[in-house]
Design a protein around this nucleic acid. Structure first.
Length: 560
RNA sequence: GUCCCAGUAGCUCAGCUGGAUAGAGCAACAGCCUUCUAAGCUGUGGGUCGGGAGUUCGAAUCUCUCCUGGGACGCCA
């Protein structure tokens, strides 16, 4: 609001040479708080007016006047504005308290549907740290979509098919031990899968054995299907444990195998459009015009490949949901694959192909290198979560032994720490895996945020605050930074969705909590003369922080 | 070899639609619990923003080039 007013007044002064949009975009928030709350740089105006930027800033600042501005000054070519703290404060708090559920929401997604492809673990492979990224980023993006008015549909597209299962079946036939697998399915299956790849280096025949098993599977061989079903069932049980811990649910969980009998139709469609070509014994769609390598549709042994399945799934998905956006939350190593999928769909004249976006993210690295399941270098998410929860439990015993619900709180804190550690990094960047860092509960962490929330709740309880006693007028210079951070929250939600990057929210919540903790440190709240006003602010803070954590998929204990 | 991404404090990272003195967290050191949960707060030290060139009134931010690391590049997903 204040920014629009500022832009409007400036553009009014400048006349038609500079649009209001341009002025608005120029406005920035000064790094130094002492400079002001908003600033407009006049340097680019200097050439047009053939005047010193300082003089221009001076002139503009003379004419800026509005109730939301406390003072206007010109320093070094900038027009700096201090906001009317009282006005902005009551405006912000009234807005938040009148409809707490609406704060931070937007309506630009109203009536639109966004389908998200997330998590997508491979059965018979353990749920690794890599899948954590897709799961928590996808979940947070879905929450952001909802806050922006969209209807999100979360789809967990389980990797339950492909040559790798041929390998697994071959490995099982050689070294599998049914009773051990029943005891600890993912661990055992991972073991024989890793062993397969180790042995295959010495004995390349194994690879062919794996292919044969996959072919059997594709031809509905009874033994192959039976084993495959078994592996699938035990894997899903394990995955659900992880999802329950993480607090993530899906609107649809579907395996790739679902598309087995639908892929021929896709291949037919490609043929009808004269897109399919034979090449080196395989069938491909050429993408030379797009400057991309060909998209492989059918392998030389006649079996299908993931591109075929993804194309089929995409078509099916549009028919089912008629989505406005279709987001694939998948690691950036698959960038080329999704480019190919989109272009093949375009060649099929599906106008909705452009609504598909690959929301790529960086990999979890170990010592700067990719973690590979095949080499057994994966780190199991379940183990990490367990350690985090144990650590949280230790902290509780040490810091607050009287706490009720210790187990529940430890779970919320431990799991929150792991999720936040992932989400605070820019989506696109690789993340160096560090158990120590994940188990840190100080500084830029979820426990820090949760602790800040708990502190706020404790104040509200001690001060006997109820939402009906809220007072939106507060005159406290120390509170200004906190109020501004609360006020910025809705804009951050919008930005986070537009860039599909939850880290925007993660970082903002850290700012928010820091502002609160600084306020907490230097202000007496419960025993002050204007206790109710201050508690209103504390309450507002707690609402926003909790909302933000919810968006990230992190729970907030009331006490810890 | 080609294409894509990254290189900022000892470590992990923000900042990148160009703007005023480059910021946090961790680690180190020094303080603060007779004010509300110290999982907190305050302060100190720590930087050729990978190197070089260019565009600009102004570059960590844009362009080019080189170096380094990572990823992708048809029968894995």
């Amino acid at each position: 609001m204040e920014r629009h007013i500022f832009a409007l007044q400036i553009s009014h002064l400048l006349g038609e040479s500079f649009s209001r949009e341009w002025v608005y975009a120029q406005i920035e928030i000064p790094k130094q708080e002492t400079h002001g709350d908003l600033a407009f740089p006049c340097f680019s105006l200097a050439k047009h007016y053939r005047k010193n930027p300082k003089d221009i800033a001076e002139e503009i600042s003379q004419s800026i006047k509005h109730d939301v501005f406390e003072s206007v000054s010109a320093t070094g070519g900038f027009v700096n504005v201090m906001l009317n703290k009282k006005f902005i404060t009551s405006h912000t708090l009234n807005q938040l308290l009148s409809e707490p559920g609406e704060f931070g929401t937007h309506s630009f997604g109203k009536g639109k549907k966004v389908v998200l492809d997330l998590s997508a673990p491979n059965i018979a492979k353990p749920f690794s740290m890599g899948h954590l990224r897709s799961t928590v980023i996808g979940n947070a993006v879905a929450n952001l979509a909802e806050k922006c008015g969209y209807e999100p549909v979360k789809i967990n597209y389980i990797g339950d098919y492909g040559t790798q299962f041929g390998k697994l079946l071959a490995a099982y036939k050689r070294w599998g031990n049914p009773s051990l697998i029943k005891e600890n399915p993912l661990h055992e299956l991972k073991k024989i899968y890793v062993k397969f790849h180790q042995e295959a280096e010495k004995n390349p025949d194994l690879i062919e054995e794996g292919r044969q098993w996959f072919r059997k599977l594709e031809h509905q061989d009874e033994e192959a299907v039976e084993l495959w079903t078994w592996f699938k069932d035990v894997s899903l049980i394990e995955f659900n444990k992880v999802y329950q811990l993480l607090g993530v649910s899906f609107d649809l969980t579907r395996g790739e195998a679902y598309y087995n009998d639908k892929m021929e139709a896709t291949i037919e469609l490609l043929k009808e459009n004269n897109l399919l070509e034979h090449s080196e014994g395989a069938e491909v769609v050429r993408l030379d015009e797009e400057g991309l390598p060909p998209c492989l549709i059918r392998k030389s042994d006649g079996t299908t490949i993931y591109a075929t399945r993804d194309l089929t799934a995409a078509i099916d998905r549009y028919q089912t949901y008629a989505f406005d956006e279709s987001l694939y939350v998948v690691g950036h190593e698959q960038t080329l694959h999704f480019q190919q999928i989109v272009h093949v769909l375009k060649k099929l004249n599906f106008e909705w192909a452009d609504r598909i976006q690959h929301i790529s993210f960086g990999m979890m690295l170990k010592d700067g290198k990719k973690m590979s399941t095949r080499k057994g270098k994966t780190i199991l998410l379940e183990e990490v979560l367990k350690e985090a929860i144990d650590k949280a439990r230790e902290n509780i015993e040490e810091k607050n032994p009287q706490l009720e619900n210790k187990d529940e709180t430890a779970r919320q804190v431990g799991v929150g720490a792991v999720i936040f550690h992932d989400l605070k990094h820019d989506r696109r960047n690789d993340v160096e895996f560090s158990l120590d860092e994940m188990l840190t509960f100080e500084g830029h962490t979820a426990p820090y945020l949760q602790y800040s929330y708990v502190r706020a709740k404790s104040l509200l309880e001690k001060g006997g605050f109820t939402s009906s006693s809220a007072a939106a007028e507060i005159d406290d210079p120390e509170a200004w930074s906190l109020i501004k951070t609360i006020r910025a929250y809705p804009e951050k939600i919008k930005m986070a969705y537009e860039t599909y990057d939850p880290s925007t929210i993660a970082k903002h919540l850290l700012d928010l909590a820091r502002s609160f903790n600084q306020y907490y440190a230097k202000t007496n709240i419960v025993n002050s003369h204007n206790k109710n006003e201050k508690l209103t602010l504390v309450y507002a803070f707690s609402l926003v922080l909790k909302d933000g954590l919810q968006v990230l998929g992190i729970e907030t204990p009331e006490k810890m």
